[in-house]
Simulated scan of single mutants.
Amino acid sequence: MGIDDMTRKAQQFLGDEKVQNALKSEKAEDVSDRILDGVAGAVNRVTGEKHTDKVEKARAEADKRVGNE
């Protein structure tokens, strides 16, 4: 399977109504919040918290894309 095939299958998967509904669920919101909090915390530790404003802005933008809040 080539990269084009994988890309097409991923787009089809993400375009499915059931998948979209799952991504907008409360469970997805809870999971994504935990993951985003962990990633933001790790980035802040690695950067010595020099870019916390940018990290929080990126975290907030990502959070808008997954879950229901």
Score class of each variant (00 low, 15 high):
57 K>L: 09
33 D>H: 08
31 V>M: 11
22 A>R: 11
40 A>C: 05
40 A>T: 02
19 V>M: 12
1 M>N: 08
66 V>G: 03
44 N>R: 13
11 Q>D: 13
69 E>V: 04
3 I>R: 11
45 R>T: 06
61 E>W: 04
30 D>M: 09
21 N>H: 09
36 L>C: 00
23 L>R: 02
56 E>Y: 02
17 E>V: 10
50 K>F: 01
54 K>E: 15
46 V>C: 03
44 N>D: 14
66 V>C: 03
9 K>H: 11
13 F>V: 11
10 A>S: 14
60 A>N: 12
51 H>V: 08
40 A>D: 04
28 A>K: 01
24 K>I: 00
47 T>Q: 03
37 D>Y: 03
17 E>C: 01
10 A>R: 12
15 G>Y: 09
38 G>W: 03
41 G>W: 03
21 N>L: 12
21 N>S: 12
27 K>N: 08
19 V>G: 05
53 D>R: 12
10 A>Y: 10
69 E>K: 15
22 A>N: 06
1 M>H: 09
42 A>G: 00
59 R>P: 05
33 D>Y: 05
62 A>P: 01
65 R>F: 04
14 L>Y: 15
31 V>G: 02
47 T>E: 07
62 A>L: 15
43 V>H: 02
39 V>D: 01
64 K>E: 14
59 R>H: 08
64 K>F: 01
